[in-house]
Amino acid sequence: MASSSSASSTTLGYEMPWVEKYRPNKVIDIVGNEDAVSRLEIIARDGNMPNLILAGPPGTGKTTSILALAHELLGPNCKEAVLELNASDDRGIDVVRNKIKMFAQKKVTLPPGRHKIIILDEADSMTSGAQQALRRTMEIYSNSTRFGLACNMSSKIIEPIQSRCALVRFSRLSDQEILGRLMVVVQAEKVPYVPEGLEAIIFTADGDMRQALNNLQATFSGFRFVNQENVFKVCDQPHPLHVKNMVRNILEGNFDDACAALKQLYDMGYSPTDVITTLFRIIKNYDMPEYLKLEFLKETGFAHMRICDGVGSLLQLCGLLAKFSIVRETAKAM
Protein backbone atom coordinates (compact mmCIF):
# COMPACT_ATOMS: atom_id res chain seq x y z
CA MET A 1 0.00 0.00 0.00
CA ALA A 2 2.78 2.33 0.94
CA SER A 3 4.63 1.57 -2.22
CA SER A 4 1.67 2.30 -4.39
CA SER A 5 1.06 5.62 -2.75
CA SER A 6 4.65 6.66 -3.17
CA ALA A 7 4.56 5.58 -6.77
CA SER A 8 1.54 7.67 -7.47
CA SER A 9 2.99 10.63 -5.67
CA THR A 10 5.73 10.88 -8.23
CA THR A 11 3.22 11.08 -11.01
CA LEU A 12 1.01 13.43 -9.07
CA GLY A 13 3.15 16.49 -9.53
CA TYR A 14 1.15 19.46 -10.58
CA GLU A 15 -2.06 17.93 -11.50
CA MET A 16 -5.20 19.67 -12.52
CA PRO A 17 -8.20 19.16 -10.35
CA TRP A 18 -9.85 15.88 -10.99
CA VAL A 19 -13.10 17.69 -11.37
CA GLU A 20 -11.75 19.27 -14.53
CA LYS A 21 -9.72 16.31 -15.59
CA TYR A 22 -12.66 13.98 -15.58
CA ARG A 23 -15.27 16.37 -16.76
CA PRO A 24 -17.21 14.58 -19.49
CA ASN A 25 -16.88 15.99 -22.96
CA LYS A 26 -19.84 14.20 -24.39
CA VAL A 27 -23.40 14.42 -23.31
CA ILE A 28 -23.68 10.67 -23.20
CA ASP A 29 -21.00 10.43 -20.55
CA ILE A 30 -22.84 12.61 -18.09
CA VAL A 31 -23.79 10.82 -14.95
CA GLY A 32 -27.26 10.93 -13.54
CA ASN A 33 -30.52 12.60 -14.51
CA GLU A 34 -30.95 10.12 -17.27
CA ASP A 35 -34.12 11.54 -18.71
CA ALA A 36 -32.77 14.99 -19.12
CA VAL A 37 -29.44 13.80 -20.40
CA SER A 38 -30.98 11.47 -22.93
CA ARG A 39 -32.99 14.36 -24.31
CA LEU A 40 -29.95 16.53 -24.52
CA GLU A 41 -28.30 13.71 -26.32
CA ILE A 42 -30.98 13.71 -28.97
CA ILE A 43 -30.65 17.45 -29.29
CA ALA A 44 -26.93 17.05 -29.70
CA ARG A 45 -27.58 14.63 -32.51
CA ASP A 46 -30.36 16.46 -34.27
CA GLY A 47 -29.48 20.03 -33.69
CA ASN A 48 -32.03 22.82 -33.41
CA MET A 49 -31.47 23.28 -29.74
CA PRO A 50 -34.26 25.13 -28.02
CA ASN A 51 -33.60 27.72 -25.38
CA LEU A 52 -32.87 25.82 -22.24
CA ILE A 53 -32.75 26.46 -18.56
CA LEU A 54 -30.98 23.82 -16.57
CA ALA A 55 -31.78 24.15 -12.93
CA GLY A 56 -30.60 22.09 -10.05
CA PRO A 57 -28.35 21.91 -7.03
CA PRO A 58 -24.61 22.34 -7.51
CA GLY A 59 -22.50 19.49 -8.74
CA THR A 60 -25.18 17.72 -10.70
CA GLY A 61 -23.74 18.36 -14.11
CA LYS A 62 -25.60 21.36 -15.44
CA THR A 63 -22.65 23.28 -16.70
CA THR A 64 -20.99 20.14 -17.91
CA SER A 65 -23.97 19.08 -19.94
CA ILE A 66 -24.51 22.42 -21.54
CA LEU A 67 -20.84 22.73 -22.43
CA ALA A 68 -20.79 19.22 -23.77
CA LEU A 69 -23.91 19.95 -25.76
CA ALA A 70 -22.34 23.02 -27.26
CA HIS A 71 -19.23 21.08 -28.16
CA GLU A 72 -21.12 18.30 -29.79
CA LEU A 73 -23.40 20.59 -31.69
CA LEU A 74 -20.84 22.96 -33.03
CA GLY A 75 -17.69 20.93 -33.07
CA PRO A 76 -14.87 22.93 -34.60
CA ASN A 77 -16.94 26.10 -34.76
CA CYS A 78 -17.16 26.06 -31.06
CA LYS A 79 -14.80 28.90 -30.56
CA GLU A 80 -16.56 31.53 -32.54
CA ALA A 81 -20.11 30.33 -32.20
CA VAL A 82 -20.27 29.98 -28.45
CA LEU A 83 -20.35 32.81 -26.00
CA GLU A 84 -19.96 31.70 -22.45
CA LEU A 85 -20.59 34.07 -19.64
CA ASN A 86 -20.62 33.14 -16.02
CA ALA A 87 -20.96 35.02 -12.80
CA SER A 88 -17.32 36.00 -12.90
CA ASP A 89 -18.00 38.00 -16.02
CA ASP A 90 -19.66 41.30 -15.93
CA ARG A 91 -23.24 40.62 -16.84
CA GLY A 92 -24.92 43.84 -16.06
CA ILE A 93 -27.61 45.27 -18.21
CA ASP A 94 -25.08 46.98 -20.41
CA VAL A 95 -23.28 43.78 -21.19
CA VAL A 96 -26.54 42.17 -22.14
CA ARG A 97 -27.40 45.08 -24.33
CA ASN A 98 -24.05 45.27 -26.00
CA LYS A 99 -22.03 42.11 -25.81
CA ILE A 100 -24.79 39.58 -26.00
CA LYS A 101 -26.76 41.48 -28.56
CA MET A 102 -23.69 41.96 -30.69
CA PHE A 103 -22.92 38.31 -30.49
CA ALA A 104 -26.45 37.45 -31.40
CA GLN A 105 -26.23 39.65 -34.45
CA LYS A 106 -22.92 38.19 -35.51
CA LYS A 107 -22.89 36.03 -38.59
CA VAL A 108 -21.23 32.67 -38.28
CA THR A 109 -21.47 30.05 -40.96
CA LEU A 110 -22.88 26.93 -39.45
CA PRO A 111 -24.35 23.75 -40.82
CA PRO A 112 -28.16 23.60 -40.96
CA GLY A 113 -29.86 22.95 -37.67
CA ARG A 114 -27.00 24.48 -35.75
CA HIS A 115 -27.13 27.81 -34.04
CA LYS A 116 -24.84 30.03 -32.16
CA ILE A 117 -25.10 29.31 -28.50
CA ILE A 118 -24.91 31.73 -25.66
CA ILE A 119 -24.23 30.00 -22.40
CA LEU A 120 -25.11 31.91 -19.31
CA ASP A 121 -23.79 30.00 -16.38
CA GLU A 122 -25.07 30.81 -12.93
CA ALA A 123 -27.85 32.78 -14.50
CA ASP A 124 -29.61 33.20 -11.20
CA SER A 125 -26.99 35.71 -10.19
CA MET A 126 -27.89 37.99 -13.04
CA THR A 127 -29.70 41.10 -12.04
CA SER A 128 -33.32 41.23 -12.93
CA GLY A 129 -32.65 44.23 -15.10
CA ALA A 130 -30.18 42.23 -17.16
CA GLN A 131 -32.66 39.42 -17.41
CA GLN A 132 -35.33 41.80 -18.59
CA ALA A 133 -33.01 43.04 -21.25
CA LEU A 134 -32.46 39.48 -22.34
CA ARG A 135 -36.09 38.79 -23.03
CA ARG A 136 -36.62 40.19 -26.44
CA THR A 137 -33.09 39.43 -27.51
CA MET A 138 -33.87 35.80 -26.99
CA GLU A 139 -36.84 36.00 -29.28
CA ILE A 140 -35.64 38.31 -31.97
CA TYR A 141 -32.46 36.48 -32.69
CA SER A 142 -33.82 33.01 -32.19
CA ASN A 143 -33.21 32.29 -35.84
CA SER A 144 -29.50 32.33 -35.34
CA THR A 145 -28.86 32.18 -31.65
CA ARG A 146 -30.01 29.98 -28.85
CA PHE A 147 -29.51 30.36 -25.16
CA GLY A 148 -28.49 27.87 -22.56
CA LEU A 149 -28.92 28.99 -19.00
CA ALA A 150 -27.68 27.13 -15.98
CA CYS A 151 -28.75 28.09 -12.52
CA ASN A 152 -29.19 26.74 -9.06
CA MET A 153 -32.50 28.30 -8.27
CA SER A 154 -34.86 28.72 -11.13
CA SER A 155 -37.01 31.00 -9.02
CA LYS A 156 -34.34 33.65 -9.32
CA ILE A 157 -34.94 33.77 -13.03
CA ILE A 158 -37.74 36.04 -14.00
CA GLU A 159 -40.86 34.39 -15.22
CA PRO A 160 -40.81 35.78 -18.76
CA ILE A 161 -37.48 34.13 -19.38
CA GLN A 162 -38.69 30.89 -17.94
CA SER A 163 -41.57 31.12 -20.30
CA ARG A 164 -39.19 31.43 -23.23
CA CYS A 165 -37.16 28.40 -22.32
CA ALA A 166 -37.64 24.75 -21.75
CA LEU A 167 -36.93 24.24 -18.11
CA VAL A 168 -35.03 21.11 -17.25
CA ARG A 169 -34.58 20.19 -13.66
CA PHE A 170 -31.49 18.38 -12.51
CA SER A 171 -31.75 16.50 -9.29
CA ARG A 172 -29.07 15.32 -6.93
CA LEU A 173 -27.22 12.29 -8.07
CA SER A 174 -27.96 9.01 -6.46
CA ASP A 175 -25.30 7.34 -4.39
CA GLN A 176 -24.85 4.69 -6.95
CA GLU A 177 -24.26 7.15 -9.74
CA ILE A 178 -21.65 8.93 -7.71
CA LEU A 179 -20.03 5.69 -6.75
CA GLY A 180 -19.87 4.63 -10.35
CA ARG A 181 -18.03 7.73 -11.35
CA LEU A 182 -15.81 7.56 -8.28
CA MET A 183 -14.79 4.05 -9.19
CA VAL A 184 -13.79 5.21 -12.64
CA VAL A 185 -11.66 7.94 -11.21
CA VAL A 186 -10.19 5.74 -8.52
CA GLN A 187 -9.17 3.19 -11.04
CA ALA A 188 -7.76 5.71 -13.42
CA GLU A 189 -5.74 7.41 -10.73
CA LYS A 190 -4.83 4.21 -8.95
CA VAL A 191 -6.03 5.46 -5.63
CA PRO A 192 -5.74 2.98 -2.80
CA TYR A 193 -9.03 2.77 -0.99
CA VAL A 194 -11.31 0.73 1.16
CA PRO A 195 -15.02 0.65 0.34
CA GLU A 196 -15.88 2.42 3.58
CA GLY A 197 -13.76 5.32 2.51
CA LEU A 198 -15.76 5.70 -0.64
CA GLU A 199 -18.88 5.39 1.39
CA ALA A 200 -17.77 8.27 3.55
CA ILE A 201 -17.01 10.32 0.49
CA ILE A 202 -20.42 9.65 -0.95
CA PHE A 203 -21.96 10.59 2.33
CA THR A 204 -20.15 13.89 2.62
CA ALA A 205 -20.82 14.73 -0.98
CA ASP A 206 -24.55 14.42 -0.51
CA GLY A 207 -25.36 13.97 -4.16
CA ASP A 208 -22.84 16.51 -5.35
CA MET A 209 -20.47 14.97 -7.82
CA ARG A 210 -18.06 17.82 -7.79
CA GLN A 211 -17.72 17.71 -4.05
CA ALA A 212 -17.25 13.99 -4.15
CA LEU A 213 -14.39 14.27 -6.58
CA ASN A 214 -12.85 17.13 -4.71
CA ASN A 215 -13.05 15.26 -1.46
CA LEU A 216 -11.57 12.22 -3.04
CA GLN A 217 -8.69 14.16 -4.40
CA ALA A 218 -8.15 16.02 -1.18
CA THR A 219 -8.13 12.84 0.82
CA PHE A 220 -5.84 11.16 -1.60
CA SER A 221 -3.35 13.96 -1.80
CA GLY A 222 -3.43 14.40 1.95
CA PHE A 223 -3.24 10.84 3.17
CA ARG A 224 -2.56 8.73 0.13
CA PHE A 225 -5.20 6.34 1.30
CA VAL A 226 -8.93 6.65 1.26
CA ASN A 227 -10.56 5.29 4.32
CA GLN A 228 -13.20 6.63 6.57
CA GLU A 229 -11.09 8.42 9.12
CA ASN A 230 -9.08 10.20 6.52
CA VAL A 231 -12.12 11.31 4.66
CA PHE A 232 -13.69 12.76 7.76
CA LYS A 233 -10.47 14.44 8.67
CA VAL A 234 -10.47 16.21 5.37
CA CYS A 235 -14.11 17.08 5.05
CA ASP A 236 -15.09 18.67 8.25
CA GLN A 237 -18.70 19.72 8.32
CA PRO A 238 -21.63 19.05 10.53
CA HIS A 239 -23.08 16.05 8.85
CA PRO A 240 -26.65 16.53 7.96
CA LEU A 241 -27.17 12.91 8.69
CA HIS A 242 -25.78 13.33 12.14
CA VAL A 243 -28.19 16.11 12.85
CA LYS A 244 -30.91 14.14 11.23
CA ASN A 245 -30.22 11.29 13.59
CA MET A 246 -30.51 13.73 16.42
CA VAL A 247 -33.89 14.87 15.27
CA ARG A 248 -35.02 11.37 14.76
CA ASN A 249 -33.95 10.47 18.24
CA ILE A 250 -35.98 13.33 19.56
CA LEU A 251 -38.98 12.28 17.63
CA GLU A 252 -38.64 8.77 18.93
CA GLY A 253 -38.31 9.94 22.47
CA ASN A 254 -34.66 9.12 22.95
CA PHE A 255 -33.72 12.38 24.47
CA ASP A 256 -30.46 11.16 25.94
CA ASP A 257 -29.20 9.94 22.64
CA ALA A 258 -30.07 13.17 20.99
CA CYS A 259 -28.26 15.04 23.71
CA ALA A 260 -25.23 12.86 23.37
CA ALA A 261 -25.18 13.42 19.65
CA LEU A 262 -25.45 17.12 20.24
CA LYS A 263 -22.64 17.05 22.73
CA GLN A 264 -20.57 15.20 20.27
CA LEU A 265 -21.24 17.78 17.61
CA TYR A 266 -20.42 20.51 20.05
CA ASP A 267 -17.23 18.85 21.12
CA MET A 268 -16.15 18.49 17.55
CA GLY A 269 -15.92 22.23 17.54
CA TYR A 270 -18.84 23.25 15.42
CA SER A 271 -20.16 26.58 16.40
CA PRO A 272 -23.68 26.64 17.75
CA THR A 273 -24.69 28.84 14.85
CA ASP A 274 -23.58 26.17 12.42
CA VAL A 275 -25.34 23.52 14.37
CA ILE A 276 -28.57 25.41 14.56
CA THR A 277 -28.55 26.39 10.91
CA THR A 278 -28.09 22.80 9.96
CA LEU A 279 -30.78 21.86 12.41
CA PHE A 280 -33.14 24.32 10.84
CA ARG A 281 -32.53 22.93 7.40
CA ILE A 282 -32.98 19.39 8.57
CA ILE A 283 -36.19 20.13 10.38
CA LYS A 284 -37.55 21.98 7.42
CA ASN A 285 -37.04 19.01 5.19
CA TYR A 286 -37.69 16.27 7.70
CA ASP A 287 -40.73 14.23 7.08
CA MET A 288 -42.69 14.66 10.26
CA PRO A 289 -46.16 15.76 11.23
CA GLU A 290 -46.65 19.31 10.21
CA TYR A 291 -47.73 20.56 13.57
CA LEU A 292 -44.55 19.24 15.08
CA LYS A 293 -42.52 20.70 12.30
CA LEU A 294 -43.94 24.14 12.76
CA GLU A 295 -43.50 24.05 16.49
CA PHE A 296 -39.96 22.82 16.10
CA LEU A 297 -39.23 25.60 13.70
CA LYS A 298 -40.63 28.10 16.12
CA GLU A 299 -38.48 26.85 18.94
CA THR A 300 -35.46 26.76 16.70
CA GLY A 301 -36.13 30.33 15.80
CA PHE A 302 -36.14 31.36 19.42
CA ALA A 303 -32.99 29.45 20.15
CA HIS A 304 -31.33 30.94 17.13
CA MET A 305 -32.28 34.34 18.36
CA ARG A 306 -30.68 33.70 21.70
CA ILE A 307 -27.60 32.29 20.06
CA CYS A 308 -27.35 35.42 18.01
CA ASP A 309 -27.47 37.26 21.27
CA GLY A 310 -24.27 35.52 22.17
CA VAL A 311 -25.43 32.73 24.40
CA GLY A 312 -24.46 29.94 22.14
CA SER A 313 -23.67 27.47 24.82
CA LEU A 314 -24.19 23.78 24.88
CA LEU A 315 -26.85 24.40 27.46
CA GLN A 316 -28.74 26.50 24.99
CA LEU A 317 -28.76 23.77 22.43
CA CYS A 318 -29.64 21.17 24.98
CA GLY A 319 -32.46 23.36 26.10
CA LEU A 320 -33.66 23.48 22.54
CA LEU A 321 -33.67 19.72 22.39
CA ALA A 322 -35.56 19.60 25.64
CA LYS A 323 -38.12 21.99 24.21
CA PHE A 324 -38.47 19.73 21.25
CA SER A 325 -39.15 16.85 23.55
CA ILE A 326 -41.78 18.83 25.38
CA VAL A 327 -43.43 19.80 22.15
CA ARG A 328 -43.44 16.22 21.11
CA GLU A 329 -44.94 15.11 24.37
CA THR A 330 -47.71 17.67 24.23
CA ALA A 331 -48.38 16.83 20.64
CA LYS A 332 -48.74 13.25 21.65
CA ALA A 333 -51.07 14.12 24.45
CA MET A 334 -53.30 16.05 22.15
Binding site: Q176, M183, L198, D257, A260
Partner: peptide
Amino acid sequence: MLNNDLKKLTTSTKGLISVPVTVLMERL
Protein backbone atom coordinates in the same frame (compact mmCIF):
# COMPACT_ATOMS: atom_id res chain seq x y z
CA MET B 1 -16.93 7.66 26.83
CA LEU B 2 -20.42 7.75 25.62
CA ASN B 3 -19.41 10.18 22.98
CA ASN B 4 -16.61 8.06 21.77
CA ASP B 5 -18.94 5.26 21.51
CA LEU B 6 -21.51 7.30 19.73
CA LYS B 7 -18.99 8.68 17.37
CA LYS B 8 -18.02 5.28 16.37
CA LEU B 9 -21.61 4.45 16.16
CA THR B 10 -22.48 7.17 13.77
CA THR B 11 -19.38 7.06 11.72
CA SER B 12 -19.02 3.42 11.18
CA THR B 13 -21.78 1.01 10.67
CA LYS B 14 -24.88 3.03 11.13
CA GLY B 15 -24.74 3.19 7.38
CA LEU B 16 -23.78 6.62 6.26
CA ILE B 17 -25.76 6.08 3.16
CA SER B 18 -28.98 4.26 2.97
CA VAL B 19 -27.66 1.41 0.90
CA PRO B 20 -24.38 -0.12 2.00
CA VAL B 21 -21.52 0.67 -0.25
CA THR B 22 -20.82 -2.94 -1.00
CA VAL B 23 -24.29 -3.44 -2.32
CA LEU B 24 -23.90 -0.38 -4.46
CA MET B 25 -20.69 -1.70 -5.88
CA GLU B 26 -22.30 -4.94 -6.75
CA ARG B 27 -25.11 -3.21 -8.51
CA LEU B 28 -22.66 -1.15 -10.37
